[in-house]
Write a protein that binds this DNA or RNA. Structure first.
Lengths: 253, 253
DNA sequence: CCGTCATATCTATCATGAGAAATTTCACGG
DNA sequence: CCGTGAAATTTCTCATGATAGATATGACGG
């Protein structure tokens, strides 16, 4: 790898240095989620910096989801597992600047969702299957209003997020779940002249129900085929609408 | 979506609130990368909080890659595009806790890399093709030592990152590039009894060279096939070694 | 013995002000 | 015209103290 020796060493602020040392400290000792970190006062003494500097370092780590802090007796800072939610929010900030199109997202969905479905065939518990069925059947009639239609769309994406949550492959799970999240955060401007397509709605719904059945009977290739078809239908539906990604920070709130 | 009304309102610290308001401020005005934010003093007045609180808010936004700050006259805080590097580092923190296996990563690589290659056929400039060739031919002989072999492996992954950088689809580009990065950060413990497989090395190298040729002549399906084959060979190579993901924060340094 | 509520205590949180460090600007001398 | 250095400006760091919130403790009533 070509080392850029002309880099002017972009000065590393003290809070950043402290944050780095704490990260190293955690990794070296292989501290697990929930492990206690030194108190504010101890860090001040340990690193020889002021309280303000320590606090800024803590905010940095907290913003990345690496620690959590609590006040009160027994309080302090603790190693905190980065949640999928947090990771999605942070990653969404990146795509805020990237002008991502619906087509871009669906190009990946069409590759990943069928693979996810196939991998889940015959591996779900009765409870998981029931949860999926509950979501898939939550709306049993076509949307009566644009608001309701949007609600149904979000629910449908919830189905995919739920499904992703069951995957054994964490990377695949995250990618699929992230895409569903991005799509749910779209602002959809329905073309007024585009009539609501009831047939597409019915197909999408039965796809999800059929998919759950295929998963239940362990039919991997069937599940893959259904999902592939489902993705094509969904993309069609999105493309017919004039959808744009809402340009905003998802904000990790 | 089921709203959890039992959520005990997990108190939002003042720095977090200030960070939120600044994000909203940026999004509302649709400020672009490089746009100037109010000075520390102005924010203190604007939000009615102390300097420390404002600074903590800035560190939060900075940790997420959303702003950069400079000292001196004309200095201050500025809207800062989240870089791919930063996004990868933040996301890597998530997988630090997830026990990701080589097989998990390759399952996605086998799906995405061929697609990426196919989409690039006939779309690269002479300069881009030359850059790829330069990386692919950087090592013209089998590795003589374990260190050299690891170096070659990292260089090979650089090839894929470079390729991803040319993709038109930002999501696909990011996923592929991220996976290459994760693999490059692996700690590879070569099995001592496993002899270096010279044939696999030669195949991998010619794959990359053939791929560039296919891309140059606009042969999408050829590129896809070569990449698919290349992925299978690479996975084989990784699996033969005893590789584990290094458990560490990539630290966004 | 067990639950519940007030209270004490522990901890992070928030505020203020002084001074250091960095970086641009601009005047000055070569 | 160019380099050098002083001044101005902005964030950065430190120091200290007061405050608020969460938890544990213990008293009290059932």
């Amino acid at each position: 790898m070509p080392e850029d020796s002309t880099t002017p060493t972009p000065r590393r602020s003290r809070p950043l240095q402290v944050a780095d040392r704490i990260k190293d400290w955690v990794v070296e000792r292989d501290l697990k989620t929930g492990a206690r970190l030194p108190s504010e006062a101890e860090m001040i003494a340990q690193f020889g910096v002021s309280k303000g500097t320590v606090r800024e370092a803590m905010r940095i780590l907290e913003a990345q989801g690496l620690i959590v802090t609590r006040t009160g007796p027994g309080g302090g800072s603790f190693v905190g597992e980065v949640t999928a939610e947090k990771a999605k929010a942070l990653l969404a900030n990146y795509f805020y600047f990237q002008e991502l199109s619906i087509a871009d997202i669906y190009r990946l969905r069409k590759l990943l969702e069928p693979e996810l479905a196939a991998g889940l065939a015959g591996r779900l518990t009765a409870g998981q299957l029931a949860a999926l069925r509950e979501i898939a059947t939550r709306y049993d009639r076509p949307a009566a209003s644009p608001e309701e239609e949007r609600e149904q769309h979000v629910t449908s994406l919830r189905f995919h997020e739920q499904l992703a949550g069951y995957a054994a492959n964490p990377l695949l799970a995250f990618c699929v779940s992230f895409m569903a999240r991005m799509l749910a955060d779209l602002t959809v401007y329905r073309r007024l002249y585009e009539p609501h397509n009831e047939e597409l709605w019915a197909r999408g719904r039965s796809h999800q129900i059929d998919l759950v059945a295929a998963l239940e009977r362990g039919d991997a290739e069937g599940a893959r085929a259904i999902m592939r078809s489902h993705m094509e239908g969904a993309e069609d539906m999105m493309q017919r609408q004039e959808a744009r990604v809402m340009r905003r920070f998802m904000s990790a709130r």
